[in-house]
């Protein structure tokens, strides 16, 4: 019979706990709630369940932290020079738009 490694025994125990302990959800179920949670659209009871999972699961905590950081970094990369709203639009573009309006 194949022997389970310490790591897989730990994951098996996590899986059992998340599945059978009241108010717990599995990591896969947690995944389905991520976007609604971040948008503040999870009902209160589901929010409690989601945050309880977050407290006990290192993997989902790290996942969610790096997921949120990904959003922040993307936003920031687009706010840098060259990606921001230009201060001025080239005069020839303004002229071209106004000329096209008359056409």
């Amino acid at each position: 019979m194949a022997r389970r490694s310490t790591k897989s025994i730990r994951n098996w125990a996590r899986g059992v706990a998340y599945r059978y302990v009241p108010m717990m959800i599995t990591c896969q179920e947690f995944e389905d709630f991520v976007i609604a949670y971040l948008e503040g659209e999870l009902p209160r009871r589901q929010t409690v369940v989601f945050e309880l999972h977050l407290k006990v699961c290192r993997e989902c905590r790290d996942y969610l932290t790096s997921y949120k950081r990904t959003i922040e970094v993307s936003k920031r990369a687009f706010q840098e020079p060259g990606q921001q709203i230009p201060d001025e639009v080239p005069e020839d573009l303004v002229r071209a738009i106004l000329a096209a309006r008359q056409a």
């Binding site: 994951n11 098996w12 920031r76 990369a77």
Partner: peptide, 30 residues
């Protein structure tokens, strides 16, 4: 994301997570 047969997430530990400032202050990283 990856999950094992027990629906547990497989996620590496993130001991250090760079901030948006740390990343975006370098033009090449941005």
């Amino acid at each position: 994301p990856i999950f094992d047969g027990d629906a547990c997430r497989i996620e590496p530990a993130w001991p250090h997570l760079a901030t948006p400032d740390e990343i975006c202050e370098h033009a090449d990283r941005r």
